[in-house]
């Protein structure tokens, strides 16, 4: 899949600014704290192998990676990696369709 050229991006603080602009009744401090708590909560859930299902947006879950022999590129040592888990995100139907329709 090609990476997009000149891709623009936003970070956490820009995201918080945008939310704060629209949620004028909430203090920027509360919004900042809330965003942190939400992502911490999702991370904690995943760490317990919970599924996180955010209707419309998408879902987070863990995918299992098979154990394998790996090689440390710096030292050349071989090490056995056990079964590992990596976070996986599946975009929800409405997000997928919105992106697809806008792109046409």
């Amino acid at each position: 899949m090609p990476a997009r050229e000149n891709a623009s991006q936003i970070n956490r603080s820009q995201l918080i600014d945008r939310i704060t602009t629209k949620q004028k009744h909430l203090s920027p401090r509360d919004v900042d704290e809330a965003v942190k708590l939400v992502f911490d909560h999702i991370a904690e859930g995943l760490a317990q192998n919970d599924r996180v299902e955010l209707r419309g947006f998408g879902s987070f879950s863990l995918r299992e990676r098979q154990p394998r022999m790996a090689c440390n590129p710096r030292t050349g040592d071989h090490v056995m990696l056990g079964t590992r888990h990596v976070p996986h995100f599946k975009p929800g139907k409405s997000l997928r369709e919105r992106l697809r329709d806008l792109f046409q």
Binding site: R4, A7, S8, Q9, I10, N11, R12, L15, R18, I19, K22, Q23, L26, V31, A34, V35, V38, F39, L54, G56, F57, L95, R98, L99, L102
Partner: peptide, 23 residues
């Protein structure tokens, strides 16, 4: 409302062609 606003704002950025990077 705040949880919805957060997810909406991420979706809106993505739909506007912006990657969202959360350190």
């Amino acid at each position: 409302e705040l949880v919805d606003a957060l997810l909406n704002e991420i979706s809106t950025a993505l739909c506007a062609g912006e990657d969202v990077r959360l350190w």
